[in-house]
């Protein structure tokens, strides 16, 4: 399955390298949502993350000629997403003081009953829970579970040490569980 995806990606990349814009459109469609999720882990602001992501895809198109197939395209792509977002975060910190991501919870929005928790509600609560996590934890969790990257690939993408990735994964899981419990109480079990 993973190999099929990689093969499909490689084929698309070859086509883009030969100037096929349609293939690039498919690549953007394939990677935009996961990339946006990663960008939000770092940037926290959805609109800004989406703007940055547009620039990321333009950068990817310009540099795709230098992609030598030594790694998976997804690893290369996410590396650009992560680097660009961290650079933007650094630039913002140097110019405007930005709010810390640990905002207090809005407990007034807790669900009243499990039957009221629609799929969209579930997504909203989970995203809220993810937003409360530390940047590195949220990023590592999404790379591991959402993008299905291995520890080695996460190491290549984030340049974090393997030990830090393991700690972030462990703490991220624990903290997410805690955040969801705070947000939803016993309703957490209905998320599954």
């Amino acid at each position: 399955m993973v190999d099929n995806v990689a093969d499909k990606d490689s084929e698309l990349v070859h086509q883009v390298q030969n100037g096929d814009m349609q293939a690039f459109r498919i690549l953007v469609d394939l990677y935009k949502d996961k990339s946006l999720s990663l960008a939000i882990s770092i940037i926290k602001d959805e609109h800004l993350a989406e703007d940055i992501l547009q620039d990321v895809f333009i950068k990817v198109y310009k540099k795709i000629g230098t992609f030598k197939f030594r790694s998976k395209f997804s690893t290369w792509m996410y590396k650009i997403v992560v680097n660009t977002c961290y650079n933007e975060l650094k630039r913002q910190r140097n110019t405007v003081p930005i709010e810390e991501n640990e905002k207090p919870f809005d407990h007034t929005t807790s669900p009243e009953g499990s039957d009221k928790l629609t799929f969209e509600d579930q997504k909203a609560y989970i995203q809220k829970g993810m937003q409360q996590l530390k940047t590195d934890e949220a990023l590592v969790l999404r790379l591991f579970y959402l993008c299905e990257m291995s520890l080695k690939e996460i190491e290549a993408i984030t340049k974090f040490k393997a030990s830090k990735i393991r700690v972030d994964l462990h703490r991220g899981r624990k903290n997410l569980e805690e955040q969801l419990r705070q947000l939803l109480g016993d309703e957490t079990k209905h998320l599954l």
Binding site: L36, Y145, L146
Partner: peptide
């Protein structure tokens, strides 16, 4: 399962805007 649900979708015209 939970983290898969945390996937955020881009706006509908995202790809067109990029191109």
């Amino acid at each position: 399962k939970i983290i898969k649900k945390s996937k955020v979708k881009t706006k509908a015209d995202f790809t067109d805007n990029v191109l």
